Simulated assay, not measured.
Amino acid sequence: MSKTNPGHFFEDFQLGQELVHATPRTVTEGDGALYTALYGSRFAVSSSAEFARALGFRGAPLDDFLVFHVVFGKTVPDISLNAVANLGYARGRFGVPVYAGDTIRTTSRVIGLKETSSGKTGVVYVNSVGTNQLGEVVCDYVRWVMVHKRDPQTPAPDPVVPDLPERVGPEDLYVPEDLRLAGYDLELAGSPHLWEDYAPGERIDHVDGMTLEEAEHMMATRLWQNTAKVHFNQFEQAGGRFGRRLVYGGHVISLARALSFNGLGNAFRVAAINAGAHANPSFAGDTVHAWSEVLEAAPVPGRDDVGALRLRTVATKDRPCATFPHKDTDGRFLPEVVLDLDYWVLMPRHAALG
């Protein structure tokens, strides 16, 4: 009997299957420092313990997408080790803040299965939940991934595709109970623009670009303990479709979020992921740019000091975003587009600052 884990193939998944992922991870201040080194994020709440404490946090919470990467990385050996591609996200919600010293673990449940028309692969839908050492939810999301079949002749299960919402409702966004925004310092945050200053339909070019480096995307993949071969095994990828390692899609998400500081500096917390697509592959040497469109501006029920902005952030490679297009006339992503992410952020309102 083999003692190694070859990963799950499509026919190994069953509807309703519960997966308890190995290797809980205690996150540290070192993780936060490495995250800054990799992406250059400048949001004040996760950069300054004093700034965060003034708002009611017990210290600087770790970046929300750092938490997402840790939760996601736990799932890879069981869900996407034999993946062709990660296809999308939905119904993602961030829960209680995560601080250095917290321990994160992840479980997943299979909620959908559908063989592809080729008969060689299938799409697996999973709901993954990350919790801290107290059992509190830190991140809860759905993703779907195309996975190889071990044997194309294996009969396909009856297709089940879950009915997923277009977006997380503003009433379902988690706002920390102790959050007090009267102490929010606009000068230290680096932006004068608050929730009321953004309007649906507005588009923001985040101006800056950041070039992907081989060493950095490899370090990030290992940091999140992501074992997907397409990201770190050049020996196997040399003969594959692209002949080189793909950059982990979450790496691009974090770069786009970091770039969005220039124009959205007071979006102090990511609250939810409504949808997302890794439109085209990214490789070392590509330069990532980003722009965002405001899709909705929603008040947070029961709060007059914080509002929610629903954003669509599009990241491109080797194409500045001044002209903003991302799809052709047939509605297909342009080849330069690498990310299309629909998500909610929290932002102070003018009432909070008097």
Rank of each mutant, 00 (worst) to 15 (best):
G190T: 08
E177Y: 14
F235S: 11
L212N: 00
A189S: 15
A228Y: 07
G240N: 09
E236W: 15
D205G: 09
E236S: 08
E214W: 01
D178G: 14
M219Y: 10
M219T: 03
W224S: 05
A189L: 06
E216N: 04
K229M: 15
E187G: 13
F232V: 12
V230F: 04
R203G: 15
T211P: 00
D205C: 11
G239E: 05
N233I: 07
D208F: 13
L223H: 09
L188M: 05
L223K: 05
G243M: 08
Q237S: 06
A189W: 03
L223P: 02
F242C: 04
S191Q: 10
R203A: 05
D205P: 13
L179H: 06
H193V: 03
L188H: 15
E177W: 15
E216K: 02
R203P: 08
D197V: 12
A199Y: 10
G240Q: 03
S191M: 10
G243T: 15
R244Q: 15
E213V: 01
G209L: 00
P192D: 07
H206D: 01
E202S: 13
E216D: 02
Y198F: 14
L179N: 03
D197M: 11
H206I: 14
M210D: 05
E216F: 04
H193G: 14
P200Q: 11
T221L: 10
S191R: 07
G183P: 07
I204E: 00
Q237Y: 08
H206F: 08
W224H: 08
M210N: 01
L186Q: 11
E214N: 08
H193N: 15
Q225V: 12
L181Q: 12
V230A: 04
G243I: 09
D208H: 14
A238T: 09
A220R: 02
G209E: 00
G240P: 06
R241N: 04
A228W: 09
T221M: 08
N233H: 08
A220G: 06
V207R: 08
V207Y: 06
G209Q: 02
T221R: 04
L212W: 00
F235A: 14
W195M: 04
V207F: 13
H206R: 06
G190D: 11
L194P: 05
R245I: 05
W195Y: 13
Q234S: 14
A215V: 01
G239Y: 15
G243Y: 14
D178M: 12
Y198A: 01
H206K: 01
D208E: 09
R245S: 12
A220K: 03
F235Y: 10
F232P: 01
F232A: 13
P200D: 11
